[in-house]
Design a binder for these strands. Structure first.
Lengths: 231, 231
DNA sequence: CGTTTATTTGAAAACGCTCAAGCTCTGTGG
DNA sequence: CCACAGAGCTTGAGCGTTTTCAAATAAACG
């Protein structure tokens, strides 16, 4: 692993402020691997053997039941996933697959648990990260229960425009079908939601969205820090 | 607080295995109070000052935005709520109100954080509880995104029948409007969902549901341990 | 290019919501 | 004990949203 990648890893909230030996050993114990797009990394109901960290690429967490499937979350660098299952030594609730070519660091769950018991700072960082994930899940549930499809899209646009640092535009770098699933709707409905937002200050052309009237979009979206807030 | 209640508190996962002084101090620092039904205990967006523990009664966690409101969770004895906000010293994402007369133990957040730093066993218990809550939220999101209203009700019936220890029947002890909101639908729609389930082995009469054909109900509900599992 | 895959559009059906009215149950006061 | 008021629940009708199915268009890939 290159030095700059190690540094990036250090920036992960999960590894913030933990002792150097802990960090070094965790990284050393991990398997760093490239995967092509479309590879299933973990399968729901399997025991949690590894903590996964996305170093490069995009990973989709998804869940399925009774023949239906939905995207739960998209993980980008540098982000860890499936922490909760690893900690409690339980099965995964979600599956994960690569959407792009991706570089993944896989740290044996047993090693994570061992260091957690030995390094108080690591334990503390895990707690913070768990709490963050928990709150994010609560927000996702509120988003799903309290908003219509078009509203979810509008708020997503506002968030992503800010993340991309382009207040007036959004560039979609994933398939729209995946975006639709993440936002809890069908691809067809996503198309229609985009059409709806054309009347509220957001013009879509392929993967590029121009936010021509931010005020109108915000008025329609009704963003709420208790749902859309970062943290 | 009576000895039997202290014992019940000890049974809370959060207090499992922690040092006696920690437990004693946390309980001693807490305010134990009765509340009548309908009292708002905490309000979303307020800073998290207390960890709340339900000793008696039922508490509803709910969330609202843009004039809409939904029930997020129902907390019964002995259960703690809003742990994540307390730990990270952040604002509440959800509001809470009593549905019945309720007895609540309120432990100052600052005290929880202090003991967390000092008692490794407590820290560990918190991590386990956080992970549990996190996974529960993920399950709730899967439930909401992957199932229809009637399916959510059917699975809820199966779960509650087991909890109540009566495989062939369920007794509803909350208002149906609250149940509807918890299951992510309107009261009208809940009525229709009950009507639908009459054709799948569940007969409803007021607050009493007879599961006349468990196999048929299960066939309709399609229960999935990765959504409905206890743990 | 031509083939495959993704996205959009259209039409119909299913689902869920709103509004309104009727019903049931409960508790209260006559 | 009964009548009644109020709250909660159910039912019906209509509407808007979302999904499904099918087809057309656009984009991506070899």
């Amino acid at each position: 692993m290159r030095a700059e990648e190690t540094a990036a890893l250090r920036g992960l909230r999960l590894f913030e402020g933990i002792a150097e030996p802990t960090f070094t050993d965790l990284v050393a114990a991990g398997y760093l691997q490239f995967f092509p797009p479309g590879v299933t990394l973990i399968r729901a109901s399997d025991p949690a053997d590894f903590l996964h960290v996305v170093i490069e690429g995009v990973v989709e967490l998804y869940a399925a039941t009774a023949g239906r499937e939905t995207t739960m979350e998209l993980v980008r660098p540098v982000g860890a996933f499936i922490l909760a299952a690893v900690l409690s030594d339980q099965v995964y609730l979600q599956s994960a697959r690569t959407l792009t070519r991706a570089r993944i660091l896989m740290i044996p769950a047993e090693r994570v648990r061992r260091w957690m018991a030995q390094d108080a700072a690591f334990m503390s960082a895990i707690t913070v990260e768990l709490a963050r994930g928990y709150r994010q899940a609560i927000k996702a549930l509120k988003n799903q229960k309290l908003r219509t499809a078009a509203e979810r899209l509008a708020n997503w646009l506002i968030i992503v425009a800010a993340e991309q640092g382009t207040p007036g535009a959004v560039e979609i770098d994933i398939e729209k079908r995946v975006l639709a699933s993440r936002l809890g709707m069908t691809p067809e409905n996503l198309s229609r939601a985009f059409a709806t937002l054309a009347g509220h200050g957001a013009q879509t052309r392929g993967t590029h969205i121009d936010i021509t009237d931010p005020a109108a979009l915000r008025a329609f979206a009704n963003p709420d820090p208790l749902i859309d807030g970062p943290e």
